[in-house]
Simulated scan of single mutants.
Amino acid sequence: MRQLFRNSVFVRWGAAFLGPHFFASLGALPRYFVEWKIYNKRATQQISFRDSYPCLGDRVAATPFDPHYFFQAAWLARRLQENKPSSHVDVGSSTMMINVLSAGVKTVFVDYRPLHVRLSNLSSLAGDIVRLPFQDGSITSLSCLHVLEHVGLGRYGDPIDPEGSLRAAAELQRVLKPGGTFFLSVPVGRERVCFNAHRVFRPSTVRSFFQDLRLDAFSLVDDAGQFNEDVPPEAASDVEYGCGLFEFVKARE
């Protein structure tokens, strides 16, 4: 029943006008019906309203994308290609990125909301980032992209905790093996809490969370959506809402 509702014509039409593009979608309606009429004149199989699925905001000059998620995935994939770990653990990052990474490296994905899929080279665990299901110093290659800023804000069903990001950072440090590499991305810029979506950090705050780790490299997606690779953390000093990409290494004992 729920699936039928999600696929209903009313839901599909409603979705066409949700979000920030309401007026653009409204303006595209006349063209939609003109093209409907043209199609029906030329086709042997006629369009029915019951099966209609208006996509009114996709006619754009260039392919749209989210710069944070696009560039952080590209950054991590290239780093893993260089490092060639035998296995990799990711905590809570984009599933659309993880499924591609697993084609090249055996990947374990951990999330508060477990991922129920079957895919070669990919295994999934249910886990809380503030209580990770791993022994101390057991992971050689670890990532957590655009996750730390959410912890403790309740957005994904996790308990409210103002110290959530700091607790999560301590756990990520704990499970990383001496000599291991940790890839982290978080929003950087003017430090603030945008309840209950996310936090934004100064790069210096992020570094203070990981005092047991050495920052080997920093990259930045700036406010213009441009990727700035291997720049000093100070490059984010004038950013309002950028994405900081931190490559940390844990000192060998």
Rank of each mutant, 00 (worst) to 15 (best):
Glu149Arg: 02
Gly57Trp: 08
Gln173Asn: 10
Pro159Tyr: 05
Asp230Lys: 07
Val91Ile: 15
Phe218Cys: 05
Leu80Glu: 06
Arg113Ser: 12
Gln173Phe: 01
Ala15Trp: 11
Val108Lys: 08
Asp66Tyr: 13
Leu18Thr: 09
Val193Ser: 12
Gln173Asp: 14
Gly189Arg: 08
Arg190Ile: 09
Gly180Thr: 10
Cys243Tyr: 00
Ser143Trp: 14
Arg252Cys: 08
Leu115Cys: 00
Leu220Gly: 04
Val11Glu: 12
Pro85Ala: 01
Lys250His: 07
Ser138Lys: 13
Phe218Pro: 12
Phe17Gly: 03
Leu172Asn: 02
Trp13Lys: 11
Gly57Leu: 04
Arg202Gly: 06
Val117Pro: 00
Thr44Arg: 13
Leu145Val: 09
Val200Ala: 09
Arg59Gly: 00
Arg174Ser: 03
Ala197Gly: 10
Ala169Ile: 05
Asn228Ile: 09
His21Ile: 02
Leu184Cys: 07
Gly244Ala: 08
Lys84Thr: 07
Phe210Arg: 02
Val108Ala: 02
Tyr112Glu: 04
Ala16Arg: 15
Glu35Asn: 15
Thr140Cys: 08
Ile47His: 15
Phe183Leu: 12
Glu191Met: 11
Thr140Tyr: 13
Ile129Glu: 00
Val9Ala: 07
Gln211Glu: 15
Pro203Thr: 10
Ile139Ala: 01
His146Leu: 10
Ala168Glu: 10
His150Leu: 09
Arg2His: 12
His88Ile: 08
Phe10Trp: 14
Val206Glu: 07
Val188Met: 06
Gly225Pro: 04
Thr44Met: 10
Glu191Ala: 15
Gly104Glu: 13
Ala170Cys: 10
Trp36Ile: 10
Val221Ile: 15
Gly189Ile: 03
Leu245Asp: 06
Ile47Thr: 13
Val60Asn: 09
Leu215Asn: 04
Val193Thr: 15
Phe209Gly: 04
Leu220Met: 09
Leu142Asn: 03
Pro54Glu: 05
Pro20Phe: 01
Gly225Tyr: 02
Gly57Lys: 14
Arg2Lys: 05
Ser120Gly: 14
Thr107Arg: 14
Val249Asp: 00
Glu149Val: 09
Thr63Phe: 15
Pro54Gln: 08
Val151Tyr: 02
Asp216Ser: 02
Arg12Leu: 09
Leu26Tyr: 13
Pro114Met: 06
Pro233Ile: 02
Phe183Met: 06
Arg42Val: 04
Arg207Lys: 12
Asn196Gly: 04
Phe33Tyr: 15
Arg207Glu: 14
Glu240Val: 01
Ser143Cys: 09
Leu119Trp: 07
Ile38Asn: 09
Asp222Val: 02
Asn7Tyr: 12
Ser204Val: 12
His146Ser: 15
Glu234His: 02
Val89Lys: 00
Gly127Ile: 10
Asp66Thr: 08
Gly92His: 08
Trp36Ser: 08
Thr107Asp: 05
Pro178Cys: 06
Val221Glu: 12
Ser93Phe: 13
His21Ala: 05
Phe201Asp: 01
Thr181Ser: 11
Ala24Arg: 15
Ser185Cys: 01
Gln173Lys: 06
Val9Tyr: 07
Gly137Met: 13
Arg78Ala: 05
Asp161Trp: 13
Lys37Pro: 00
Trp13Leu: 11
Thr95Leu: 14
Phe195Glu: 12
Val110Asp: 00
Ala169Thr: 04
Phe218Val: 03
Ser48Thr: 15
Asp111Val: 08
Ala224Ser: 14
Gln173Cys: 12
Leu101Thr: 13
Leu213Ala: 04
Gly19Val: 06
Asn121Lys: 14
